[in-house]
């Protein structure tokens, strides 16, 4: 089992428990087969409520850093309530993507902060498909499909690529990037003028604060 550190400890704004989250992280690591010799540091941003979800992973010499919105663990029906099943599935997704980053086939992948929305959505589909096959609860293709279509387009080409990504057992970063190029070529929509917020922006204080 990898060394796992969860912050904050204790939580002050939401009734989450750091040791419970560490246990779930260990369970997720075992499910994914995440290497024991890579230390995991998980920072949960307890300020962000549902539905402001978000996950970013970064692998460096010190180990794996995961940043996750507290909303990722929150029961959508009960504000502030920690939902263990949801938390486990979110942690599995984060660790699957982190494990990909440890492989040489992903050495060319941009950092999570630098992925385009299209690239991130495609990678998320492959991740979710694998989590589904691992028997992880709360994985639903119909749910992810809408998120994916927002970034890849509402057309047959995008849907076919979705099925391929979902079913894939092994992929490389260039293959994910090629899938994105395929949907990009079929996407006739106007490109958004703004890009999505990233972790650092989600955490940034207001200028007047």
């Amino acid at each position: 089992m990898p060394a796992i550190t969860v912050a904050p400890d204790p939580f002050t704004l939401v009734p989450y428990d750091a040791s419970t989250i560490a246990q779930l992280t260990a369970e997720a690591a075992a499910l994914v087969g995440f290497p024991d010799d890579v230390a995991v540091t998980l920072e949960v941003d307890e300020v962000l409520p549902h539905p402001l979800t978000g996950t970013f992973v970064a692998v460096g010499p010190e180990g794996l850093d995961i940043w996750m919105s507290g909303a990722n663990f929150e029961d959508p029906k009960r504000p502030l309530k920690f939902q263990p099943e949801l938390a486990l599935s979110e942690l599995v997704r984060a660790l699957l993507r982190a494990a990909d980053r440890l492989r040489p086939e992903f050495s060319g992948a941009p950092t999570d902060e630098d992925l385009t929305d299209r690239q991130r959505a495609a990678w998320d589909v492959w991740t979710e498909g694998r989590a589904h096959r691992l028997g992880v609860p709360a994985t639903r293709p119909d749910r992810l499909l809408y998120h994916y279509r927002l970034h890849h387009g509402f057309n047959d080409v995008a849907d076919e690529v979705f099925r391929r990504l979902w079913d894939a057992d092994a992929l490389t970063w260039p293959e994910i990037d090629e899938a994105c190029a395929e949907t990009d070529a079929a996407d006739t929509r106007e490109r958004p003028k703004k890009t999505a917020l990233r972790k650092e922006q989600l955490r940034a204080p207001r200028p007047s604060a």
């Binding site: 300020v47 539905p51 979800t53 909303a71 998120h147 927002l150 970034h151 703004k194 890009t195 955490r203």
Partner: peptide, 29 residues
Amino acid sequence: DPRNAAMMERDLGSAKLEPSRPAAADRAR
């Protein structure tokens, strides 16, 4: 919600519901 005050100190940019914003699918759902 005890998170409200801390949320208001964040610079989250435009809150308008747009596909390119964070968690757009969840917010729309």
